[in-house]
Amino acid sequence: TFTSYQLEELEKVFQKTHYPDVYAREQLAMRTDLTEARVQVWFQNRRA
């Protein structure tokens, strides 16, 4: 599960791009204290 802060950050990036590159995902992962893999999976699920 994600915190409301994490979801907010993820959604913010999703609004800009549905396909963030690895750099964007790593920045987001650091900001949200998630792994890059978790961020990647979240985007895959969000796009589905």
Rank of each mutant, 00 (worst) to 15 (best):
W42E: 01
R31M: 10
V22G: 08
E9S: 04
L7K: 05
Y23V: 14
A48W: 08
R25Y: 07
A37T: 09
Q27D: 11
F14W: 15
T1W: 13
R31K: 11
R38K: 12
F14K: 00
E11K: 03
D33W: 07
N45Y: 11
F14D: 06
A48K: 12
R38M: 15
R46G: 02
E26A: 12
R31Y: 05
V13S: 06
W42I: 03
E26C: 14
Y19L: 03
L10I: 01
V41K: 14
L10M: 13
V39T: 02
T1K: 10
E8A: 13
M30C: 08
V13Q: 08
L28K: 00
T32Q: 02
F14I: 15
D33Y: 07
R46S: 03
Y19H: 08
T17K: 04
E8D: 15
A37Q: 12
A24C: 14
T17W: 07
E26L: 15
A37S: 09
P20L: 06
L10C: 05
R46T: 03
L28G: 00
P20R: 01
T3E: 06
T17V: 06
E26P: 02
D33P: 10
Y19K: 03
R31D: 05
F2D: 01
R47S: 04
R25Q: 05
R38V: 15
F2P: 03
V41C: 12
P20D: 02
A24V: 14
R31C: 05
D21E: 14
V41F: 13
R25H: 03
N45W: 13
K12A: 10
V39F: 01
A29K: 05
F14N: 12
N45P: 01
D21C: 06
E36R: 05
E11D: 04
T1D: 11
A37N: 08
P20S: 01
A29S: 07
A24Q: 14
F14A: 02
A29M: 10
A37W: 14
S4Q: 14
N45K: 12
R46K: 09
N45I: 10
T32C: 12
S4E: 12
D33L: 10
S4N: 10
E26G: 08
Q40L: 14
T32Y: 05
Y23C: 09
V13A: 13
A29V: 07
V41M: 15
N45V: 11
Q27G: 06
P20K: 06
A24Y: 06
F14H: 01
R31L: 12
F2W: 08
Q6T: 03
K12P: 01
E8C: 14
E36I: 10
A29W: 04
P20T: 01
K16Y: 10
E9V: 06
A24M: 15
T32H: 03
Q15A: 14
V13T: 08
Q6Y: 02
L34C: 04
K12M: 08
K16E: 15
L28D: 01
L34R: 00
T3Q: 05
V39Q: 01
Q27H: 08
Y19Q: 14
H18N: 09
R25K: 04
V39N: 01
V22Q: 15
F2T: 02
Y23P: 05
K12N: 06
Q15M: 10
V41S: 13
E36V: 13
T1L: 12
Q6G: 01
A29P: 01
E11F: 04
R31G: 04
D21N: 10
Q15G: 07
Y23L: 13
Y5H: 07
V41G: 11
W42K: 00
T17M: 09
V39C: 01
E8P: 13
A37P: 07
Q15I: 12
R38C: 14
Q15H: 08
V41N: 14
E11S: 03
E9G: 02
H18V: 06
A29L: 05
L7E: 08
W42C: 02
A48G: 11
K12G: 05
Y19W: 14
K12W: 06
F43S: 00
L28F: 07
L34G: 01
Y5A: 07
F14M: 01
K16V: 14
Y19P: 15
V39Y: 01
P20W: 02
H18M: 13
S4I: 13
T35G: 04
E9P: 00
V22K: 15
R38E: 15
L34Y: 01
A37I: 10
Q44W: 07
T3A: 06
L34S: 05
E8L: 10
R46Q: 05
S4T: 13
S4W: 11
R25P: 02
H18S: 09
D21F: 15
R46A: 07
T32G: 02
L34I: 05
E8R: 10
D33N: 15
D21V: 03
Y5I: 07
F14V: 01
T3N: 08
V39R: 00
Y5V: 07
Q40A: 14
Q27K: 09
V13C: 07
P20I: 05
A37D: 12
L10D: 00
M30T: 08
K16D: 09
N45G: 07
M30R: 14
L28W: 00
M30W: 08
M30F: 10
K16R: 12
K16F: 10
R25G: 02
